[in-house]
Design a binder for these strands. Sequence first.
DNA 1: AATAAATTTACAGTAGCTGCACATTCACGG
DNA 2: CCGTGAATGTGCAGCTACTGTAAATTTATT
Lengths: 232, 232
Amino acid sequence: MSSSAASTQSTPTGPGPDEGLRARKRAATQAALEAAAISQASEHGYHHVTVDMICEAAQVSQRTFFNYFATKEAAFLGASPPIPSEGAVKRFITGNGGSVLAELVLMIESAIVASEPDRDVLRARRTLIENTPELFSSEIIRLAELEDRLAGIVLQRFEARGRTEATTPDILDEAHMVVGLAVSILRFAMRKASESDYSADPRAILRHAIGLVERITGVNPFTTDAREPRRD
Amino acid sequence: MSSSAASTQSTPTGPGPDEGLRARKRAATQAALEAAAISQASEHGYHHVTVDMICEAAQVSQRTFFNYFATKEAAFLGASPPIPSEGAVKRFITGNGGSVLAELVLMIESAIVASEPDRDVLRARRTLIENTPELFSSEIIRLAELEDRLAGIVLQRFEARGRTEATTPDILDEAHMVVGLAVSILRFAMRKASESDYSADPRAILRHAIGLVERITGVNPFTTDAREPRRD
DNA sequence: AATAAATTTACAGTAGCTGCACATTCACGG
DNA sequence: CCGTGAATGTGCAGCTACTGTAAATTTATT
């Protein structure tokens, strides 16, 4: 389940130019299907795209489509969910001096970007997702499905800092909440990014989002609302 | 769209014992369908329940089912989404001295509880939702669909406190983020509640969740991780 | 080239969901 | 009480997503 690691390359996405003809063909039809899906959507509008249309455009049978994607939506979202690479995870656990929240968010963002080597496809896909509530929902669900895994990673980071159940009884809860907050921030950031038509710096948006969270919760949340922003 | 307010009663949910026979029948079949859905799920397991089964149990045609619910899942989730009552909204905007986050969360929680007068049904439903990823996802989506409306309400609260675009340029962003955080907290709380089999005090769980957020973001998120909890 | 394994495909079938036309039921004024 | 219109229930035909299965085609291995 977790094998299939690269042998010479480090890119987690690419099928590898070696790996044999079989793997290459497989990657090709998958890419063709994903591209066809997005293409058809931009041409006819998402709701008017049927699986059969995608199949015809990609020159495969409908049954083959469902051999690659569990659902129709998966073809639009991209098959590979944004799972951070092992290296990124290790770096996150060790830490770069930032806050859990900020670094978690950045790690996931990197994973999303890395999940699609083709910039144009990624961009078209994100635009489509952002403008299609149905797809946007699916995207959120996908992130939610990563939650347990991510919470485990956060927990490892905590433990690497000497925090355990002994020092913090509800540390697992805290880890889960960190992931939840990170997802909120990402949602916000993705929305913002699409609003600015992806011209704004993604990192800047993320910082802004994290700043908002700080502003909202910075003061004791049981006493008063946030006051004026201090800077920026 | 926003009319149909009560005439003598104040309960926002009940069809009213008056309102005419037509309304009563409608409410009855809807309740019957929702009850049948949950009942069938507890008997055969969610994934083995078909719309036809629900219809047979509720003694209506399939076509009628879809006159009441847009999707099959809606029957399990309950038709009425958790929209806070006008009074609750007004109270929230005015404020009771708590933080935005805490009060928002409490308001939504109240709306969820109020959306189903029957305690047993509510409980069975929540258990089912919590144990069915598919339904849980739908539930999240539903909350997300309220986001814009809720953000508007939060904005009103801000303005009632003298905060406007002038004092805080990104105040709309802040409102959206408040809603996002509230949803995170609710998700966490719902999960926790189902883990404890709904024996724990919901309010206590919410406080715990909010406390976690505070702990995580209390310190400048760009410098260090959260330190030891200060109390509790 | 022969065999095994992976991939593709056609075909049949289930289930969610919709439009439409028609029957039934309730509301309301005379 | 009756007739009329609006709301609601239902049957039916049809589209689309999705699945199981078995047979065909393609790639890998020896």
